[in-house]
Design a protein around this nucleic acid. Structure first.
Lengths: 327, 327
DNA sequence: CTGAAAGCGCTTACAG
DNA sequence: CTGAAAGCGCTTACAG
């Protein structure tokens, strides 16, 4: 049997209340000599607090829950780093649950696990919840926030990049470098993120009166394979002279297939990718990227979760373009 | 206020005991009509079970804890996928905690969080615990297992690759292809894994009477930068004709620096890397790898955690060499 | 500075 | 098929 507060109390010749106070470091409730004795005995008995009991009686927990997907792209890492660093500052534990990709059962399971534990807050990272699961989350009396998943609604608090700007800036960048026929690859246009990026792209093109062509937009799910497939579909003599990849991995897929076609990057084809993870730096040529502030999404999201005030306001983290060798 | 079992009981005109039984699906304790009514009311009240209370009274939890490090390499993903898939089969939740790299405080914090929650089992992924923290883990009455971290002790249950064999097989592979001067890069020889791989390397060399040279072994921490640094130190005219990278990232560092030096891979320099993650396939040339069974470590580790029997026996997951373009 | 007592929300023998 | 009651391990007003 594991030692309880009662065992410690008995061994120390004090009440359970006193043990509880000493171990919780409530000040002014006991003499230092009592405290010392209690601590020593607790250690020797191998006492470990029972968090279930504490949470039950205090009606709150020092835990924030993070729901992530098994990464089809690789940026979640940075977001998680940010969450972890910020959580530690506030003395919170982080528990992470996987929810797969578009898997309503897994989403619900992860949500319920967190709700049943009455965590302090829930961060949903790069996942689009189904309507039922969204309702479940909203119905729980728990603060929540979406990271890197902008819904088309101002009522859902999120921290993400401005995807319209991502599409716009990437396109502007290429236009300024002389490109007039620009492809857009592996974006999922069924979700808000993809739609916004396409809108930004089109705005940048039409702003300077450049025509666009549906053939230049190859949809996908942000994956490496989508990038390869898109480039194959552009063919050995692509109509476009520059391509925007929806993720670093997608852009690498484009790059590799282009090389396969003996197309020179960046001379014959420029590539810019969206995300700016370390992958962009380890491939050759290194990829020019629209870099997102993933780490900041993590820290900011965590901070706002704890902030009773502006709980509903959404926020964008800044993006920046990093020029490397692919443009 | 969140609805409790009592609220549901009252609204349904039954006792809390009955509500509890219905919601926990205990069979044979109630009529279907009662059950139906209870369920409907529970839903309409937005009742959610309080896991703290359940765990407190049942003295057990349906959760396994996973301690991981902020990845300096990228293989943990696959291990986690395996853990998740297996856990779901057993209807368990997984909570993951980050413990940084060689950070005793974070290790302890993660361990305590899990121990205080009395989780069903603890998996420690690719982390070398300090002696104190190891004692803490062993002192708790909780099954545990190390994944991808072999300690030099048969008393610690682990699931990992046979690192001696990794070193040996990688070296044999290169020797068979005619290489006689073989480098070993970015291995951390202060830990057991690195030591075993070096031992395997040396065994393979001396088995065929090949001399070795301390200059051929460049230690490191498995990182991309270690790979770059090692290759720089080999120089533009490396003494070796083949290099074994301690991780995919390290090997990519070697590769990129070699290309920088205008060294042709694989013609002038062969590279084989250890891990075999997707990174090996997205760089050009693609890397030949000693591929580890990370996913299986996850599933097997989870299964063994739950298995009351052979809890102390350690196990190796198979490795295989995948030939690609870098050799 | 210290303790007795109530109570957090649930489960489960026990008695019917 | 159903309920009253005890109890899981802790915290915290309340009383001294």
């Amino acid at each position: 049997m594991v030692a309880t507060i009662k065992d410690v109390a008995e061994a120390a010749g004090v009440s359970a209340a006193t043990v509880s106070r000493v171990l919780a470091k409530k000040k002014g409730f006991y003499s230092e000599s009592t405290a010392h004795r209690v601590r020593k005995i607790a250690t020797s008995l191998g006492y470990e607090k029972n968090t279930s009991a504490v949470e039950l009686v205090t009606q709150k927990s020092q835990v924030i829950g993070v729901i992530i997907s098994s990464t089809r792209t690789n940026f979640s890492e940075k977001i998680i780093d940010g969450i972890q660093d910020e959580a530690i500052k506030h003395n919170l534990s982080v528990i992470m649950l996987y929810a797969g990709q578009n898997n309503p059962e897994l989403q619900e399971r992860a949500l319920r696990t967190l709700i049943e534990r009455a965590v302090k807050g829930i961060l949903v990272v790069a996942i689009q919840l189904t309507d039922e699961n969204l309702a479940l989350l909203q119905g729980a009396q728990i603060p929540y926030r979406f990271l890197s998943t902008a819904y088309n609604s101002d009522r859902l608090p999120s921290i993400a990049s401005n995807d319209y700007q991502i599409g716009y800036q990437a396109t502007r960048y290429l236009i300024k470098r002389g490109h007039r026929k620009i492809g857009l690859v592996a974006m999922d246009t069924t979700d808000y993120i993809g739609q916004q990026r396409v809108a930004g792209y089109q705005a940048a093109m039409s702003e300077v009166k450049l025509p666009t062509n549906d053939e230049w937009i190859k949809v996908g799910m942000y994956t490496y394979e989508d990038g390869v497939r898109a480039m194959k579909s552009f063919g050995q003599q692509p109509d476009v002279t520059a391509i925007i990849g929806a993720s670093d991995l997608a852009a690498i897929g484009v790059l590799n297939q282009a090389v396969q076609f003996h197309i020179k990057v960046p001379d014959q084809l420029a590539i810019i990718s969206i995300d700016g993870t370390y992958l962009a730096e380890i491939v050759r040529p290194q990829l020019t990227t629209v870099t997102q502030g993933f780490y900041d999404m993590g820290t900011l999201g965590t901070r706002m979760l704890l902030d009773q005030e502006n709980r509903t306001t959404s926020q964008f983290t800044p993006i920046k373009i990093e020029t490397r060798q692919s443009t």
